[in-house]
Amino acid sequence: LEAKFDDSTIFKKIIDSFKDSVTQINFVCSESGIEAQAIDDSRVLLVTVSIPPSCFESYRCDRPTTIGVYLASLAKLLKSANTNSSLTLYVADKPDELLLLFEEPKNQKSMEYKLKLVDITADMLEVDSDMKSDVTVEMSSVEFTKTVRDLTQLSDSFTVSVTKDGIVFSVQGDTAQGKVLLQPREDLADESNNLSISMSKTIDLSFASKYLLDIIKAASISNKIFLKFSDDTPALFEFKMEKGGGVGFYLAPKYDD
C-alpha cells in the first residue's frame, strides 16, 4: 500500500472521529480504497469507515492487505498532522508495520513514524449499507452537535421522533426535561443549514446519551449529517466527506422493558 493524502489533517480527522468509540480497528485495503468497521466493547455502537481512492492525491494497493492498529497509538502519531503537510501511508507486502511519512516541502521538513501493526480478531457484523429506512434526515452537523450537547446534559436517554411536522429531539431527566423541534428549512445563503426530511412513516426511538456524545466527535468530518431511522432497528448517523467516503455509526436503540 502506498497512499498519499495531500493534507495530513484529513486522515487525522477521520481517526479522531472514532478513536474514543472503539479501541482497535482493522483497515482493509484494496484497489478500491480503505474500508473498516469496528464494534465497541458493549456491542451497541458500530463504526464504519470508507476512504476511497478519490480522497487521496495518489493511491496504490497492489494486493489486498489488512492493517490492524490500536487507535490510541495511531492518534498519537497523527498529532503531527497539519494542513501544510502531506501524509503518505506505506505498508509492505508482508505487513508488520505501518509507515507514516509527513512531508512539508515548503519548510523543507519531513517526519517519519512507524507503527507496529497488531493482529486483531474481531467479529464483523453483516450490515447492509443499502438498508432501507423509514426516515432519512439531512441536517447541519453543527446543529446536531449542539442539540446533542445541550440535551444529553439532562438525561442518559435521548429520544428522537420524526413526524410530518419535523424532527424532535427530547430528553426526560429526573429534575428537568428538554425538547428541540427542528423543521425542514432551505437556507439559500448557506446550504449547510438546510434540513430535509424524507419519510414513509413516523418513528420514535430512544438511544443512550453517551453514544451520541461519541458520535458527534465525528462532526469535524462534514458540516452535514445524514440520519437514518426505522422503527425498532439500529439508527445510522453518517458523515460524508467532500471527496467521497466518510464515517458512519450504527447505534442500537433502547427499548422499554
Binding site: 467479529d123 457484523l125 442500537a252 433502547k254
Partner: peptide
C-alpha cells in the same frame, strides 16, 4: 425502565 439493545440482535455476526 428502558433497556439497551445490542447490534448483534439485529445484524448477523460474520
Amino acid at each position: 425502565k428502558s433497556k439497551q439493545r445490542k447490534l448483534t440482535d439485529f445484524f448477523p455476526v460474520d
